[in-house]
Design a protein around this nucleic acid. Structure first.
Lengths: 212, 212
DNA sequence: TAGATTGTTAATCGATTAACAATC
DNA sequence: TAGATTGTTAATCGATTAACAATC
């Protein structure tokens, strides 16, 4: 029985784009940025930007806009990106490697502290400075890694089994890059990054807009 | 001035999950599957599943459910996945390689016919049977490749430039895996696959539900 | 038959958009 | 000052959920 309602998910999803635009403005030395400018940049409605930014608690000045530095700090804080998040990566294939090399994560407070794989050839190596351990060792390794978030990039055929294994080891949140609908105990958070649904939207748009 | 309204995007986004569940049922030899069962599997409301499936035009039998084979065919057809989609991949790094090896795409009618990169070491090789060409050659190569969809996996610093280059070459739809808001001419479709927004949602959920 | 599930029609809910006085 | 932009309050829009008669 949760009392506190989650903030609007669509708004949360848009905040990173706002942050991106606002950080660019910051880099250019701007002290203020208006909702109108952000909206133009992202092809959104100004009213939507203002409404979304209200969630951060930052108040703007009419005619001038929102204070850039404060806004950046407030978005970071709202998204909890001003805190260190430590994640482990399960699977050490191409997708895992791409994620471990993704330069945006460290900026957003996300550190990938270790990878786990079953392939003995990969175990013992390190990717972009991140060590690859044997998946067998997860129970033993996880406490020292201090990480409750796992990024799941294993083949879908073993996704459920591996999910159970890592939850057993103490993982309480999974960023799921497989196309499997994971069955997890109550209290475990799963965020599914669904390539298929993006492709579905793209495919329908191509048909509707380009007629093919 | 478009007359035909796009079908509901949330519904379209859920269809691939339905398809996944229904294909599993098909594999198990089931001839019918009820909305209730699909809903349970995906942790959704039965009424939502029924409403979504209505978009395919398939009618179910009370007490029994929806005909599995017909439903699969109808979803494929609705998503246009029964047609061959040819895409090129721009950038031939880890993410590109992961996508070229992703086994679900071929099943969904998506063929990655070529990759393009600026790195001379990668050019000339092939990844999972897909040739890697020099990005310089895109204008010359694209017509023969018969592909109007590009999957963009280049570093964000050059995303806009590369987008302009490939649009110039004839690409009319971009599946954008960078975190850049691309500026494109009217008529070009951009579908952004936004890692940051997924991470934002995850981060807020972890704070709200696990308090950390 | 009895009852689970369907499709439809209506109600609710939440997100987006509009309108506008306040103000820098 | 004049007017662009703000935050707020209200209206609209669309998606989700509820209710229920029809039916296999």
């Amino acid at each position: 029985m949760r009392m506190t309602k989650l903030p609007s998910l669509p708004t949360i999803r848009r905040l990173p784009s706002y942050l991106h635009v606002i950080e660019n403005a910051h880099r250019e030395g701007l002290k203020f940025i208006s909702g109108t400018v952000i909206a133009e940049e992202l092809d959104l409605e100004p009213i939507q930007v203002r409404k979304d930014l209200a969630i951060t608690g930052i108040v703007g000045k009419p005619r001038i806009g929102f204070p850039v530095a404060e806004l950046i700090r407030a978005i970071y804080s709202f998204l909890y990106w001003n805190q260190d998040h430590r994640a482990i990566v399960i699977g050490a294939g191409n997708l895992a490697t791409a994620l471990m090399r993704y330069p945006e994560f460290p900026k957003r407070g996300l550190t990938l502290v270790a990878a786990f794989d079953v392939d003995p050839i990969k175990v013992g190596r390190s990717i972009n400075g991140t060590p690859v351990y044997s998946l067998d060792e997860i129970g033993r390794r996880l406490p020292a890694l201090q990480s409750s978030l796992a990024i799941l990039t294993v083949p879908s055929s073993c996704a459920q089994d591996v999910a159970e294994l890592i939850i057993e080891a103490g993982v309480t949140a999974i960023w799921n890059f497989t196309n499997v609908e994971l069955k997890v105990p109550a209290g475990v958070i799963v965020q599914k990054e669904d390539l298929s649904s993006g492709y579905a939207v793209l495919s329908v748009k191509m048909r509707e807009l380009h007629g093919k």
